[in-house]
Design a protein around this nucleic acid. Structure first.
Lengths: 231, 231
DNA sequence: CGCGATTTGAATCACGCGTTTGACACGGGC
DNA sequence: GCCCGTGTCAAACGCGTGATTCAAATCGCG
């Protein structure tokens, strides 16, 4: 009755692909496994068979999406710290090592770049403790390393100030990932990547300026005392 | 059988209060009308009776929450523009007029200040077109006025650059509203408001630095060619 | 008091959800 | 040929959801 069957289930591959797409478009909460199986022309039970449960599917999608990003982040930061041989890395370069993988890691998945970025946005806005444990550790680890690198680049900024500013930058990043429709409403350039590169450049300058808080253009001398608030 | 009944339904008041609280804590999507009626010790049907539907309740909560914020924003901006009599308002003051109402408007609701802020975070992260039409207009209107005011304060920044930087600032603001747990993890001060004021100060400095992008410390003399005039 | 409008409560409806079940089609190895 | 592991499928289960119904309770007011 059936045509041809593949060993190692090719419908599993299709399910994963469709799930990534739908989760990226609409977020994890609003997409049902029936949405996924319908679009993938598979049976509802297939999800529980292949991934154990809906949460198993989500965990896999999250892992596959986030792991390459974090790995590339670490590699880039390693490279930078080697390049500057223990000295503080210039702030902009640290930030770029943190955000550039948000674009370049897209290839390692079967997703278009805009959808991949959107998926990242959804993932980053989930409460950390709802992610698979391994991912939580991975993210915390990367965040720690980058926080320390940034602190080293901005020695005159107090730890508490810095924590908040990084918090703000994180929010800006997530918002950028989730709402890229603006790219097509605003940008003049038509082709996909050039404008996205430009956006990344904008973001890096924005983040660097906000982190420095207009104090120092570069960690040169001027180590002023820290005022708490000005209004 | 019943004890005392109030005219004009006091259970409606309780339902609204509980709804605000639950929506603030968990977001709109995950709270069911049964959660609300249960905690308010009312009947499920009461929500449909008093508010028409679940969406009617949400619309009301959104309206009651956001309106005072936007009104205070406009008033503050009016005051500033009068004070500076048509000249560009200093960037920090514009930003403060935009974000200070996020704190000070809390009193006009029956909600604790942290919950009020969190509720604002949920609302701002909804897609604009899912809000009640009047709220969408109100928000767009306020955003436009503030965008123009900021543009006036930063005449040397191109419109496209500015749009993106405001986009980033918006993301940082939403993230701050939604994840204030950090306040208790980080801050040394114990009492509620002083540290929140400090946080607001931090945010204003961050936003101002990011918007300026390290270019100009203040829009002194240097009057760039700005074409946008409104009234 | 007693009428009419307002408000309540319990039961019910139809639906979508994640998950489970059991039957059945394969296809390679004993 | 038979069997068994791998996939697939339709159907159903149990649950929670938003919404609705209708009778009873309650209150404002003449």
């Amino acid at each position: 009755m059936r045509e041809l069957k593949f060993p190692q289930s090719e419908s599993k591959r299709r399910l994963l692909e469709v799930a990534e797409q739908l989760f990226a478009e609409h977020g994890f909460q609003t997409v049902s496994i029936r949405d996924v199986t319908q679009l993938a022309k598979a049976n509802v039970a297939a999800i529980n068979y292949h991934f154990g449960s809906r949460n198993g599917l989500i965990a896999l999608v999250v892992t596959l999406t986030i792991t390459p990003v974090n790995e590339e982040r670490i590699v880039r930061l390693d490279t930078l710290e080697k390049k500057w041989s223990g000295k503080a890395v210039p702030l902009e370069e640290v930030i770029e090592a943190f955000v550039r993988p948000l674009l370049s890691s897209a290839r390692k998945t079967g997703l278009s770049e805009p959808l991949f970025r959107r998926l990242l946005g959804w993932i980053f806005s989930m409460p950390l403790e709802t992610l698979p444990q391994a991912m939580e550790d991975q993210i915390r680890n990367a965040s720690d390393r980058f926080s320390r690198a940034i602190a080293k680049s901005l020695p005159s900024v107090s730890a508490e100030d810095l924590a908040w500013r990084i918090h703000f930058v994180t929010g800006a990043m997530i918002h950028m990932l989730l709402h890229q429709e603006m790219l097509h409403q605003l940008s003049n350039g038509a082709s996909g990547n050039p404008t996205m590169d430009a956006l990344l450049g904008r973001f890096i300058r924005f983040a660097a300026a906000g982190l420095r808080d207009g104090a120092e253009p570069e960690p040169i001398e001027k180590k002023g005392p820290q005022a708490t608030f000005n209004f």
